[in-house]
Design a protein around this nucleic acid. Structure first.
Lengths: 131, 131
DNA sequence: TCAATATTTGAAGTTAACGTAAACGTTATA
DNA sequence: TATAACGTTTACGTTAACTTCAAATATTGA
C-alpha cells in the first residue's frame, strides 16, 4: 500500500476506475507491460503513468493503437526512431486534431450555456442556483 | 448550387465529408429529418446546421443518442420539456465532461510539445521550422 | 424515349473496446 | 484441509456506428 509499491491488478483497476479485464486487454494491445511474479501481474509506477496517459488519450477519442504509438515514441531510444519525418507528420496531425478538439469544446460549452438559458425560458418556475 | 437551395444527399455528404449512407443512418437515428420530393431526400439549411452540430458532438465523443437529445432539446417547445430538473442535471454532466475534455486537450498539447522536443533530441539532424 | 446516372431500401458484415463465462491455479487463514 | 478470495487463460458475446452489398426504383440528359 505504500507509495511506490507494486500494485496488484485490482488495486490499479480500482484506482483508475477501470476493470481488471481492461488492464489485461490494454496489455494485449501493448499499452502496458507489467512484471510477473509467477503468472500474477505486478504493476509499477511506470505502468501507472502509462495508464494515466492512455486513459487521457482515450477520453480524447484516440484509438488504443494511436495511444500505443505515442507511448512508444515517448519511451523510444535513439536507434528506434526509424522514420522521424513520418513521425513528425503524425505528431502534427495529432496536434491539429487536439486543437480542433479544444475549439470544439469551447463552442460546445457556449452552446450548452445557450441551451440552459433556453431551458430556463421554457420552464420558468424552476430552481436555479447563483442566478 | 446557390446558397439556401436544398441539397441533394450527395451534395451534403461531400460538403461534410461523410457518406450518403451515413446521412440516411443519421436520419434513422432521428438526427436529421429532410423533406422529400417523391422518395428523394432534400436537405435544408436546418438540416445542414443540425448536421454540423452532430458532427461536432461526434468529434467530442458524444454518442448519437446524446446528440439527438441535445438537438431535440434545442428545438423543443414549452410543453415538450417534461422533466426539466433531470435535463438540467444532464446538461451539467455534459458541461463537466466538456470541461474535462478541454483540460485534457490542453495537457495533451503540452505533452505533444514535449514529445516533439524529445524527437528533436533523438534525431538531431532533422529539418525544423521556425526553431 | 431510352440509356446513363442517382437514389432508395433492406439486410448483412465490420471494427474497436471491451464484457462475460468457464475452468483452472495460488494464497491466506480458520 | 477446506474454503474463500484473488488471479490466470481462452474463447465467445456485445454494442455503437458505421460500411458494403444487392436489387429495385427514380431522375436526368441527349
Amino acid at each position: 500500500m505504500l507509495h511506490g509499491a507494486p500494485y496488484t491488478i485490482t488495486e490499479l483497476a480500482e484506482a483508475f476506475e477501470v476493470t481488471a479485464r481492461t488492464l489485461r486487454f490494454y496489455e494485449d494491445c501493448g499499452l502496458l507491460d507489467p512484471e510477473r511474479r509467477g503468472r500474477t501481474r505486478l504493476y509499477s509506477e511506470r505502468d501507472r503513468k502509462r495508464l494515466r496517459l492512455a486513459l487521457r488519450g482515450k477520453r480524447l477519442g484516440f484509438s488504443l493503437e494511436e495511444i500505443k504509438e505515442m507511448l512508444d515514441l515517448h519511451h523510444a531510444r535513439p536507434g528506434q526512431v526509424t522514420e522521424p519525418d513520418a513521425l513528425r507528420a503524425r505528431i502534427e496531425a495529432h496536434r491539429a486534431r487536439l486543437t480542433q478538439y479544444r475549439e470544439d469544446a469551447e463552442i460546445a460549452l457556449d452552446w450548452l450555456d445557450a441551451l440552459e438559458a433556453r431551458l430556463d425560458r421554457l420552464v420558468p418556475g424552476a430552481a436555479r442556483r447563483a442566478g
